[in-house]
Amino acid sequence: MVSPMGAHHIPDPAAPRVNAWRVLLIGRRPAHTLVRTGILAALCFLVFRFVLIPVFVRGESMEPTFRDGGLNMANTLVYRLRDPLPGEVVVIEMATRRTMYLKRVLATPGDTVYFQQGALFVNGMRIEEPYVIQGGRWTTPPEQLGVDEYFVAGDNRSTPWEWHTMGVVNRSRIAGRILF
């Protein structure tokens, strides 16, 4: 270590020796470290509780985009600023935000949506879905979406649509958007 005067610093032999491991773990001032740790813990709690919710994927309805057992994050702030858009993957809350559905938005309020032999039609136009690898032969009746209503479905269409949780969801249920 070099002092501001340019000379080498000579440690004072009378000064108490500081344990390097202790300094590394709890710092030179344990009280300050404790406060900093507390603030960091509170910040982490707030962020991961209210802003970025960890999502543990269970089930196969979103395969192959999201595999069973995968871990992801949901951004809950994005839909406070704007509405969900078609193609976005969203989390839909149930009784609480601890258990949620993971689905893709296919149509937005005012749209008429239906499936014909596995192909998606929104307002009479066929929509290409590159994310669907395991396609099926879904044919559903046309659904006119009301105000605040969105049409959602999973990417895995290999099961009959009657067995697949898909359909109309209210805007208030959409809790956030999947990050990656």
Binding site: K103, P141, E143, E162, M166, G167, V169, R173
Partner: peptide, 8 residues
Amino acid sequence: QAIRPPRR
């Protein structure tokens, strides 16, 4: 039902 299936 959080997600309502299409009406038949």
